[in-house]
Structure formats: C-alpha cells, structure tokens
Amino acid sequence: MLITKTFRSLGSIKIPLILFMILLFVISIQAPKLFSVSGFSNAILVSAPLILATLALTPIVMAGRGAVDLSIGPLISFLNVTLIAWLSGNNITNPIVFCLWAVIAGAGYQIIQALIVTYIRIAPIIVALSGYLILTGVNLMVMSRPGGLSPEWMSSWSGGGEPQIFSPILILVLTALGLWGLFTRTGLYKQLRLVGSDERMAYTSGVRVDFVRIVAYALGGVFAGFAALSYTALVSSGDPTQGATYTLQAVTALVLGGASLSGGRGTATGALLGALNMFLITYLLGAFSFGSLSGYITSLAYGGILAASLLVNVVSNRSSVSRG
C-alpha cells in the first residue's frame, strides 16, 4: 500500500527512475569501473553539460505553447566560443567575470526570445529555430574552427590532477539543482505550472502570464550559462560545431525525463535523470566493443529507449485512467 502510494506520487519521473535503476544494475555487472573515484569523477565531468542543458530547457518547456528551445545547443556553443575567443583570448581570465558573462549572456539571450514570443506573438518553436540558425552562423563567425584554450583555473576543473568526486563541476551542478529547488518553493513556480497547463485560465485568474514566461526563460538562460561553463571545462577550448548535437541530446533527455512538451509538467529530478540515463546508455554501450559502429548504435539506442519509455508512459497512464 505504502509502496504503491509512493510510487504514484513519483508521477512523471517514475519511468526515468526505473530506467535509471535498470541501467545502474546492468552497468554494475557489465562495467563496474563506473563505481570508482575516477569513474565517478569522469562521469560527472562528461554528463554535467547535458544535465545542465536539459535543466535549461525545463522551465522554458514548462511555460507552455510547445516551447522547446531548439537553440539551446548553439547557445551553449555561443557562450563557449565567446568565453574562449572574447574573454580568454583577450587575457580576461578572472573566474568571476567568466561566470558572470556566461550566466548574464545566457539569460539575456533567453529574455530576448521570451520578449519575441510574448509581445510579437510568434510561436516559440519558430523563434527557437531562428535562434538556432542565427547562433550557428554567429558561432562560426566568432570562431571558424575548434581552438583556443580555457584559462588555467578552468582546465584544472576537468581533473588535471587527482580524480576527485567533489570537483567544481559537481558543485556547479549542485548549485543549479539548489537554485531550482529554491525556485520550486516560490509562488512563481506554481504560477509557471498553471500558465503552462492552461494559459487562458491563468490569465483570467489574475496571473501575470507574460512576466511569468519571461522569468522562466531567464532562468533557463542562467542554466544555459552553467551548462556552457561545464562544457568549456570539459573540452578546455572553444568549439563552434557542437550545437546541433547538444540540442538533440538535451531534447531527448528532457522527454526521457518525463517532461510534457505541451507544457505544465517538468521537474529538475526528471531533467537530471533523463540526462544521466543518456550518459549511462552511452557508457554501457562503450563497455561493449562495437568498433566503428558505436556511434550509430548509440543513436539507435537513444531513439529506441525514448520511443519505448513514451510507450510505457502511455500504457501506464491508460491503465491508471481506466482504474479511476
């Protein structure tokens, strides 16, 4: 009784959670190296950008109107190349300036998107698609090919020395999750869910819909900044070409984490689990040797598991409806 009740209260994250458990279990047999200090610290380093990118999509998708921010990948890429080319390239390496630039530029970009969506009333997906194309071009103008070097303090993040679990990257992820946790305790969060679920209802009930949407986008932008910092630490340089990959992976992780693309539903835990599952799938497949095929197999696995988890979701929802 208690178990079924807890299980039901998990709601949208129960399927990603089950998948997470299964993956951990299989990995503990097939590739137990993950459960060591170096395996762990590496896992954090590699999965952090995706976790944060997925988290950046969460408030935006929650705001409704089918707002999936396709430009998230190129945005992270933009922040990454500007950090390297504009700041590091000009010998501006102060950590505070670095972090502020990533966070403020990320939030600024998303606020512009939100203003266009709100006041010019263009469908969010179109705005995001335009942003994707524009930023892809801009990134190549800032930096025509991968290159540059991250400041010294940052390269030490990516485990230059001893592998450690409590690396700055982990702290970055925890800070982001903490920020989200604080956000969920505000009235704004409740309003965001209601706006995403039924905008007209929220408006007529006296919720400042436009303001809520802008804040949601800005928060997404802040997380995009975090994602860019962790990504820069991971590659230790600037790379204008990874945008598309991150967009696709983050959207996959978002859905895998149980968020509703039609708005109103989304959790940080879901985003975290979705991104971690993606990482674990890659990790697990890496333990088998598919040789040159591994890239295809990974995409295949992402797609297959995504479809399967949506299917399970549909089936389990149907059975709970017929019960009720």
């Binding site: 869910r193 509703s260 109103g264």
Partner: peptide, 12 residues
C-alpha cells in the same frame, strides 16, 4: 471550464 489539467486540485 478553465482548469489546468496538469496541476493538482489545490493549486487550481
């Protein structure tokens, strides 16, 4: 009937 289907009764 304006309700947010995704949210619980209390929040609505």
């Amino acid at each position: 009937v304006l309700v947010a289907d995704e949210a619980n009764v209390l929040d609505n």
